[in-house]
């Protein structure tokens, strides 16, 4: 990768995030409070609206489907949070599972990430269609992936760990070249 390409987009495997899958009905009492408490230091509820992700204190809760959420946290906190959540949701019909090893995480940094994603899948990644706080599950190449904006000019993305090698090659290919810069237009 040339220096100019690297300035537009850098690809990094990781960080290895702890992930906890939670499935239950969205109207379970205390669900938002339990997730907010799990993130720590959050006042009140942390239940993301559909298609969104709520981040705080190095952790995040993402909306996966109408009855599924994914809690992202540093790996070492996974076991503690899992225990805490199952304690708080005890008595309610729910499913909690540590799925940290099920998915591989990638970080894309630099202004070129929108263009790289646009090359790989059908998701609308224009600034108007995809902004901070949104969580999009979609298709990249031939596999399912999910991504969200984790900082200025930084995107975090995950896919099944069984296809991590494919995803890495795919992203490396998409990061190559300078592209037409369609998302660089002023005001875009």
């Amino acid at each position: 990768m040339s220096e100019r390409e690297a300035a537009r987009l850098r690809l990094r495997r990781g960080p290895g995030l702890g992930m906890i899958a939670l499935r239950c009905a969205p109207h379970v009492p205390g669900l938002g409070e339990a997730l907010g408490g799990a993130l720590g230091g959050m006042r009140g509820a942390a239940l993301p609206e559909r298609g969104r992700i709520v981040s705080a204190n190095g952790g995040a809760v993402a909306w996966m489907s109408p009855d599924e959420w994914l809690l992202l946290c540093p790996r070492e906190r996974t076991a503690g949070l899992l225990e805490r959540l199952s304690r708080e949701l005890a008595g309610e019909h729910h499913l909690l599972a540590d799925v940290s090893d099920a998915r591989a995480v990638f970080t894309l940094s630099g202004p070129g990430w929108r263009e790289a994603l646009a090359r790989l899948g059908p998701a609308d990644v224009s600034p108007a269609g995809f902004g901070a706080g949104m969580f999009r599950r979609s298709r990249l190449g031939q596999v399912a992936a999910a991504f969200w904006i984790s900082g200025p000019d930084e995107l975090r993305l995950f896919c099944r760990s069984s296809v991590a090698g494919y995803m890495e090659a795919l992203l490396e290919g998409a990061a190559r070249g300078e592209g037409p810069g369609i998302f660089d237009a002023p005001g875009a």
Binding site: R50, G51, S65, P66, P122, D124, R136, R137, S138, R139
Partner: peptide
């Protein structure tokens, strides 16, 4: 109708 996303055929 669940995500509110305009999903391309290849996502389905």
């Amino acid at each position: 109708p669940f995500c509110g996303i305009m999903a391309d055929e290849t996502e389905l």
